[in-house]
């Protein structure tokens, strides 16, 4: 009988990603309701030392596969390791992050474990001991309630939506041998090109300042960069701005770009095409600054200013600097 709420913790270069603590806290809540244990799987190289940190967020036990072959991440090595321990211990629920790595790993695990998964969930609950996952579909134009009839019941959690709450448990560390022969690994990471800007990725950002066609060109973004600098925010863009070549592909928010859920999303010169609204409407607070009072973005905004963004945004940056200074 499948039992226990499990998470797969995500780390990069020996430091946990924030999503790992969000996963741990969410699993703790579910496990308390079920009267079960929370276990984590941690796969990496030289990671045994950090494993115990998960205890702080409610993890009872951490299964660690620590080997040089796990760094950097490859699907083959990590999926094989997680699948091995999950098949052996048979958890009822298995949660991963819906990050780039978590999506890659979780989907491969669905294949390996021949089970079902709800992707990119924004809420989870239990109904008669079974997991019910709530997730956006059509980029948030509607939502679905998903139930999984096989074990483990898998879900990936959208980063930045579930809160990480300290709730100290044992966090006992147990190493396991993933039994992987380097010869069976097919893919190889040849190069890692890190973004040197050091900016937080849109999907993980708490604050986003985003610009659209109203920015009038690539140079217009300097006012947004300035405001973002004051707030510690990440700059995003609409599809129109990306397609015009004003901003890189990685900055695009929307149905064919990134789906974001920051605490604050400031939309500047963005009219609010439905495919853009789909990508940002799960933001907690939305601000719209646009000359056109009829722009659809105002229908989603908590606060709106109808005016020229090139006049408002620099003043907003000054005011925020005063408040935060």
């Amino acid at each position: 009988m499948a039992k226990g709420v499990w998470i797969v913790a995500e780390q990069r270069e020996g430091a946990f990603r924030k999503i790992s603590f969000e996963l741990a806290s969410t699993a703790r809540k579910l496990a308390d309701e079920l009267g079960d244990e929370v276990c984590a799987v941690l796969v990496g190289s030289g990671v045994e030392g950090i494993a115990g940190e998960l205890g702080k967020y409610g993890v009872d036990k951490v299964y660690v596969a620590d080997d040089a072959i796990f760094e950097p991440y490859t699907t083959d090595a990590h999926a094989a390791a997680v699948a091995k321990i999950v098949k052996e211990k048979d958890p009822a629920i298995l949660l991963l992050g819906a990050s780039a790595q978590g999506k890659d790993l979780s989907s491969r695990l669905v294949g390996k474990l021949a089970t079902g998964m709800a992707t990119d969930c924004t809420d989870l609950r239990l109904d008669g001991g079974k997991l019910v996952a709530f997730r956006p579909m059509y980029a948030g134009k509607c939502f679905g309630e998903i139930m999984i009839s096989s074990f483990p019941q898998m879900a990936s959690l959208r980063p930045n939506v579930f809160s990480a709450v300290e709730n100290a448990k044992a966090g006992a560390v147990e190493k396991f041998d993933a039994g992987i022969d380097a010869g069976q690994l097919k893919t190889k990471v040849l190069e890692v090109q890190k973004e040197t800007s050091g900016k937080v990725d849109l999907t993980e950002a708490n604050l986003i300042v985003s610009g659209g066609r109203g920015m009038q060109g690539p140079d217009g973004y300097s006012v947004l960069e300035e405001l973002a600098g004051v707030l510690g925010a990440t700059v995003g863009a609409s599809r129109a701005a990306v397609d015009a070549g004003w901003r890189p592909q990685t900055d695009q928010v929307g149905q064919t770009g990134k789906v974001v859920s920051p605490n604050l999303y400031v939309a500047c010169g963005i009219s609010g095409a439905i495919q853009h609204l789909a990508g940002m409407s799960s933001s907690k607070v939305i601000v719209a600054i646009n000359k056109d009072s009829e722009a659809p973005i105002f229908s989603k905004a908590d606060y709106g200013i109808v005016d020229d963004l090139f006049k408002v945004v620099p003043e907003l940056a000054k005011e925020c600097k005063k408040l935060l200074g």
Binding site: T115, F143, G144, S149
Partner: peptide
Amino acid sequence: DKAKVVKFVPPPAR
């Protein structure tokens, strides 16, 4: 039907 959408709902209103 390992994973099944048991219900579709409109997005929460703002």
